[in-house]
């Protein structure tokens, strides 16, 4: 995994996601989810492209069910974009590189 993509857990969620002053993109995934693997290269590319403007990380829903439950995640991959601790946008399912970049662009000047 790319060094620019963080690993979020229930332990670091508050500090790294909710209290972040930079927008945060969270990729909710699980090891048994094929489509989650499909978007990995695109998520990694976003982390590189928006380095310094956007924090990008992944949360394993199997290992952190309390976090995914809190946001009502019932389909993966789900991507949530957080701004000042609040969900600014949510996309569910496989997305192309372009679709993801457009989504991020809407929230980052």
């Amino acid at each position: 995994m790319s060094a620019n993509v963080k690993t979020f857990t229930s332990d670091n969620w508050d500090g790294e996601v909710l209290k972040s002053t930079t927008p945060v993109l969270v990729d909710f995934w699980a090891s048994w989810c094929g489509p989650c693997r499909m978007i990995v290269p695109h998520v990694e590319a976003l982390a590189e492209k928006y380095l310094g403007k956007l924090v990008v990380g992944k949360l394993n829903v199997d290992e952190n069910p309390n976090v995914s439950g809190q946001y009502g995640i019932r389909g993966i991959p789900t991507l949530l974009l957080f701004k000042n601790g609040k969900v600014a946008e949510q996309v569910v399912g496989v997305q192309s590189k372009e679709q993801l970049a457009k989504m991020v662009d809407r929230h980052i000047s």
Partner: peptide, 16 residues
């Protein structure tokens, strides 16, 4: 969609 509507049982079955 993503709140119980899915096209991928292997992805989302475990939530149910």
């Amino acid at each position: 969609w993503g709140k119980g509507v899915s096209v991928c049982a292997t992805c989302d079955g475990a939530f149910f």
